[in-house]
Write a protein that binds this DNA or RNA. Structure first.
Lengths: 238, 238
DNA sequence: AGCCGCTTGTGAACGCCTGAACAAAGTCGA
DNA sequence: TCGACTTTGTTCAGGCGTTCACAAGCGGCT
């Protein structure tokens, strides 16, 4: 019985599960054997009730009156998130952002693993980044076919992002993480997640400006800790 | 009359406004004078109706039957998002990710501007990144006071992120963008946005795995183009 | 000058996610 | 062995965001 019943887990929940997994890894290193939902929630920066709801998506995995077993919950999350083996990822565009991301492959058990890095710059091609040798982007089709990569990461300039995306899709990549500031057009059946670092800063700047405009806003809200959202977190006066 | 009435714009809308602004800048460079909501929406990767709703938050700014004036809408978005002047940002942790971000300061009119880069590594301190000289992190308090920075960006290792955050908050920074994989604890009145690159990849890996587990899922959904969300976009079979 | 077509702006419904309160269950102590 | 406390798992209501669909308004053509 490989997968039990988690047929449809909300995307926001999946993102939080990954956070829980990281916290649990830290707790395991500290030698902890059990955790309560409250402690785990504060460490992850979420609401305890929400955490329990998230965990309920993969069936009962805690013991009432005691809490969650760190090791077993960690293993269960690892299995749910990453499956048995890590999925191979290809990264295109080994600039500063690209090489920083390549290092996130870090330790296994995360569900993904970089198997190839591609770039056009002759000065970068051939160099070693995160234990991999950078290959020329001209070999994209060959590399994807050999590694059977199903995930592509685009950290190229915006001008070439769409063409790189098209080539990735053409050779079978159906999951793409896009850091280029463009909206990629893809056929049905392809997942695209977009991360826009510039937009994140602009949003923060807007909130900062808005707060200055209203020194003491009408709502004296109080929040003790950060209240994370799918990918971003906010807390404080609005 | 500086600000008209946009007292409370949803955060998700603000993120999209930043995207629209970038698209408009490109259209202006191409010499376009007017755009329809449909064209702008496809370029930004959103729904036309949603785009109009987003724009409605800052009052009527289009002409019925014609569309939006590229230049005037761009100016209006610039004013709304960034205000009159760019807000000063301090970045702590000039690694690969940090230096990549520093370059995003790129051209002005984005609402933010890096005014200082800090790091602890003696090899990095003193070097020039994105036109700025990296200062030692020990001078954090002095630098923030001199530059009156109100936004802090944390691209340090996770171990020191909380202490850096505490120091930033102590000297008056009330908006923080956190790239370290930890949940920062901050007092009320401080905004924290978190970007977790590792989680993004894990979510993508999960979706990829889930799709493989269900070759032909129960729902034969069809989507022609990417359907973006606040910070991420997805499209395709689930 | 009047009509037609196009586009914006807005109102309402749908669905999702979040947050809180309640019941089930298991353990520890007596 | 029984009771009570602790903590999980679930259910319910509330809010937010997105989407669809229609009315209002403006330009261009005849």
């Amino acid at each position: 019985m490989p997968e039990s019943r988690p047929r449809n887990i909300p995307e926001a929940t999946v993102a939080r599960l990954a956070v829980y997994l990281r916290v649990l890894a830290g707790l395991a290193d500290d030698g902890r054997s059990h955790v309560s939902s409250g402690e785990l929630a504060t460490a992850a920066g979420v609401n305890p009730a929400g955490l329990r709801k998230d965990l309920s998506h993969l069936g009962p995995c805690g013991v009432r009156g005691v809490g969650y077993s760190v090791a077993s919950l960690r293993d269960r999350l690892t299995e749910t998130l990453g499956g048995a083996r890590s999925r191979p990822c290809v990264l295109v565009g080994v600039g500063r952002l690209g090489s920083a991301l390549a290092d996130y492959s870090g330790f296994p058990g995360r569900g993904f693993e970089f198997v190839a890095l591609l770039d056009t710059d002759p000065a970068t091609v051939g160099s070693s980044v995160a234990g991999l040798t950078v290959a020329p982007v001209a070999e994209l089709e060959t590399v994807v076919a050999e590694t059977r990569a199903s995930i592509g990461v685009i950290t190229t300039p915006a001008e070439v992002a769409q063409s790189v995306c098209d080539r990735l899709v053409a050779v079978g990549v159906r999951s793409i993480l896009n850091f280029a500031p463009v909206a990629l057009a893809v056929p049905a059946g392809v997942d695209v997640r977009k991360v826009d670092l510039s937009v994140e800063l602009q949003v923060l700047a807007f909130l900062d400006q808005q707060r200055d405009s209203t020194p003491s806003a009408v709502e004296p809200n109080r929040v003790e800790r950060v209240r994370p959202l799918p990918s971003t977190a906010r807390a404080g006066v609005r």
